[in-house]
Design a protein around this nucleic acid. Structure first.
Lengths: 132, 132
DNA sequence: CGGCATCCCCTCGGATACTG
DNA sequence: CAGTATCCGAGGGGATGCCG
């Protein structure tokens, strides 16, 4: 997953932000990052903290984030195994960069839902797109 | 597209930002938003400006953004049809909220790619995950 | 010009079962 | 506990063709 698509690159100047969406835009990464923003967490803690995530997807997500240098994975040689995840310094700056988006969302989700409802009402009305 | 998934909601306090990723986290929305940040654009202008996007996906993307109140669609009653898209005020604030992420990406993409390369080298090494 | 309809492939991600 | 392996369905998204 997280395909590093070679095409579509030099199109929008400075809009390489799409590339970060390839990393954190998936279904679970942001949850993991947000949780780890609160400090080091064990695998099972993350699993419990991210409602609805499967074991497999948690592993896949964490592997991807580790690969990208956003989280670290520390395995302790004890039985049963103990593995701890934490944000790297870069991961922490990423969380900071995402924060405005979180704030924006909190302030505008209601507006979006309203726009949707209005749009859907129009779409369901008998005459639509409604000429003239 | 853009499924408003009813489950997975009250998990991470304040991490409803996942919900905005459901809106702009798809493959093309951010490109369209970034382009429209430069002003009103016609359909074909957007198509040319977003390299690799298909006609269908541009339509789908713009419909979604329109539905969410992020862009406006204005159709002029001329032949051939002339349609113009622009950011709504809310759309503009969204672009502002995304800006830190764009900046972050520009500053850290190299670091991410380096982390990846290092990770992949380790993964390809003969003994891995490397016991002891 | 700016769509919509159709077909179809391929990836994401869920369920389940097994391992050190 | 913390994974890995396998199977499989849903849907995101590309290609193509037709329409007002």
């Amino acid at each position: 997953m997280r395909t590093t698509d070679p095409q579509v690159e030099e199109t929008l100047p400075g809009c390489r932000a799409r590339e970060i969406l390839d990393r954190i835009g998936d279904k679970w990464s942001l949850y993991a990052i947000a949780l780890l923003g609160g400090g080091t967490r064990r695998f099972t803690e993350l699993k419990r903290g991210i409602d609805g995530i499967s074991q497999r997807m948690l592993t896949v997500t964490l592997r991807g984030l580790e690969r990208d240098g956003i989280v670290t994975r520390t395995q302790y040689p004890v039985v049963p195994v103990r593995v701890e995840y934490a944000l790297t310094p870069m991961g922490r700056t990423l969380l900071d960069a995402v924060h405005p988006l979180i704030t924006w969302t909190e302030g505008h989700l209601a507006g979006i839902d309203a726009a949707r409802a209005a749009y859907d009402v129009r779409a369901d009305s008998p005459n639509w797109p409604g000429s003239l």
